[in-house]
Nucleic acid binder design. Structure first.
Lengths: 332, 332
DNA sequence: CTGAAAGCGCTAACAA
DNA sequence: TTGTTAGCGCTTTCAG
């Protein structure tokens, strides 16, 4: 594996000149520069990024730590982050914390050890582990969920309001016993969506005591179980607000296994627009979150902070929008 | 940011001792080791991975370059790779080539520059850019698609056979004019699936000339367009083999927009099992690929090669399995 | 404009 | 067992 000195030797110059020529920094005699270029290509020279970063004390790598690679919401964020990073010359490495605080911590350690330039994090919970970054001065921006107790940049969705509106929509459609299937306690989005749901019920003085609420992991299986429990209640719900798309799958399976008609028997609105929403019958009403934009905004915030760490901390809150479809119509 | 010499100074030992103590290599006096540990935690010391890797001439990082982060098939592979890497102390960084040879090349460069220990690659096409790795001696394993002309380890799916069986299944179900919507020419999985489809038709001497075949990008929109073209033919197909799940969405949308009943009017079998396959009506017949296993096998192969580069090159071919559901039944 | 030389933080011989 | 020392490959003063 060719090093800079191999190139220097071949071109008959010093390593300093090679470095300068290849990085186009201070001016180098065009003729020498050409010799260097040629030597480099002849040798198949690829600069050692480790050595470079070690010397420069900086890397052009961002870490993106998300809680579920298999969730389209997060992969859309990933695309957003990547697209922006790309145009600014940064690479992004994607880490999957799997909604697991320990794994998240491990990746934060890796991020620090590898001296990444910055981190976009969707925190699993009320983490303190992020202190590692603060200590070390690595910029972070939280995405989708806030970073409690840490004054860092954040890009969030007004998910409580969205849940409120979704619930209102169900009420307006004539549903009366509205239930909610949400994520684990402590996960901010799960709590916020539940809060929005309660706000809406409270606003119309509906069903305050009969708590048709179930929590589960943000996955299909738990949600199916939760939905079955609700549907088997003596007074089952006639509509459900579901906190993400993986859960929606479980809920729809539950409906199927109880032979309940979507919309007519049980209205459903789920968070996250998914490509298959219009393929089912009736099509699924969803709360579409601006996932891609979340990613682009987060990346821009992060890169800005990397280049100027004195900027004041900002929180950007994006809106979600309800897309009403057949699954929230009682009569076809 | 504390360095190893800060720790050494604080513990009153040499940096070598700190290194040894922290890495648990050769034996260190327990008492000294304890002092080092304490000094390290007091200072919030995190070893500099760059310096370490530079010195050791090795990194504990694998690169996984896939062609679409938003495709569940690839994210399942990612999980497989990650789970195995994790247990062996490696981190994996995920790169999204976006089915774009140039982007793939850029990430290969980054992989070389960052001196990753190895690469799992799902090649976009007939790439030569992978030469960069070979030159540099970085181990690669190809996953899902072969690396043409490069003798590297590979983990593939017998997708041609699977397509053959899927087509056979359609024939057995009574469909007579079977079409195929597959990916771009040159993408091996797309070509193989088409080949398997043709094999099956050929075997029964069916419809050899009337080519009901369309190609498009592995995405919903192109597939919708392609399906519409086929459906608007004077003699439209009565069944379709669809080469991936994103395409399946487009095809199903096309059916919907032409008011054709899935199964009854047009049978459909699609590659990749997706969670929503059973939510549509009738449920979708699919070819389930062992994506997660593809990832685990690839990672193991890669790690084995990293530790012993003299192993002979192997190709592992995994099987796919047809899951017959309602979308391939002509009569309900 | 170019080269010599120092050093980023760490590990691994080699000595002691 | 511990310390001294020499680099890993690169960039960047500082001289020339």
């Amino acid at each position: 594996m060719a090093t800079i000195s191999d190139v220097a030797a071949r071109a008959g110059v010093s390593t300093a000149t090679v470095s300068r020529a290849l990085n186009g920094k201070s001016t180098v005699d065009p003729e020498l520069a050409a010799r260097v270029q040629q030597a480099a290509t002849e040798l198949g020279y690829h600069p050692n990024g480790l050595a470079r970063s070690l010397r420069r004390q900086e890397t052009a790598v961002l870490a993106l730590i998300i809680s579920d690679v298999e969730n389209p919401f997060f992969t859309a964020i990933a695309r957003g982050v990547e697209d922006v990073a790309q145009t600014r010359g940064y690479s992004v490495v994607l880490c999957n914390s799997d909604e697991n605080a320990e794994k998240e911590g491990r990746y934060l350690d890796v991020a620090v050890q590898e001296r990444v330039a910055g981190v976009v994090l969707s925190p699993t919970g009320a983490e303190t582990k992020v202190e590692v970054l603060r200590q070390r001065g690595t910029p972070v921006v939280a995405v989708d969920r806030p970073l409690v107790g840490a004054e860092s940049d954040q890009v969030l969705v007004d998910t409580r309001l969205a849940a409120y509106e979704a619930t209102e929509h169900l009420l307006a459609a004539g549903y009366r016993r509205i239930g909610c299937v949400t994520g684990p306690a402590g996960v901010r989005t799960a709590d916020d969506r539940l809060a929005g749901y309660r706000d809406a019920l409270h606003a119309v003085g509906a069903e305050r005591d009969a708590e048709l609420v179930r929590r589960a992991e943000y996955r299909a299986t738990g949600a199916k179980q939760a939905a079955l429990e609700l549907l088997d209640e003596p007074e089952p719900p006639d509509a459900l607000l579901v906190a993400n798309s993986a859960m929606a799958i479980g809920v729809l399976e539950a409906l199927g296994s109880r032979n309940l008609r979507l919309g007519a028997d049980v209205g459903v609105v789920a968070f996250d627009d998914v490509p298959w929403a219009t393929l089912i019958n009736p099509p699924l009403t969803v709360v579409a979150q601006p996932a891609y934009e979340l990613g682009t905004v987060a990346a821009r915030l992060l890169l800005d902070r990397i280049s100027d760490n004195t900027r004041e901390v900002t929180t950007r809150t994006l809106g979600a929008r309800l897309i009403a479809r057949g699954s929230t119509q009682r009569t076809p």
